[in-house]
Design a protein around this nucleic acid. Structure first.
Length: 105
DNA sequence: ACTCAGGCGCTAC
DNA sequence: AGTAGCGCCTGAG
């Protein structure tokens, strides 16, 4: 595992419960701005045993990026809902409300 | 809401 | 080692 992946994991691990963070934000906070896509690789390569709140990572639109029709997409949605995050009717998350860190304004 | 182009590391050849 | 294609992205048009 590369140093960068660990940086990603550290940031993801610091996302508070009930909040979500975007790929781009994670990349930036980890010290690698502009590498949002790489965060996807980091998650795909995420060791199963590791306790990382991967489900709190969504794309810039506040939507679940991996196949929301697939199994993992549904698992992610369920996990987020169980943390108190409410999805909009079109299966999206209001980043203004749940986004972390509170970047806007 | 949809399409297009930029961007960066991973994988395959 | 060098090249080419690809992806859990993003911002702009």
């Amino acid at each position: 595992m590369s140093e960068r992946y660990q940086a990603y994991y550290r940031i993801i691990g610091s996302i508070p419960e009930g909040c979500v963070c975007t790929y781009g934000t994670i990349a930036a906070l980890a010290g690698y701005p502009g590498t949002a896509r790489q965060v996807g690789y980091a998650l795909a390569a995420l060791p199963e045993g590791l306790e990382i709140p991967w489900h709190r990572v969504v794309n810039s639109k506040g939507e679940i990026s991996l196949d929301n029709h697939g199994h993992w997409g549904q698992v992610q949605r369920a996990m987020l809902e169980s943390e108190g995050i409410q999805f909009t009717v079109n299966r999206r998350i209001n980043l203004k409300r749940y986004g972390w860190p509170h970047e806007s304004i």
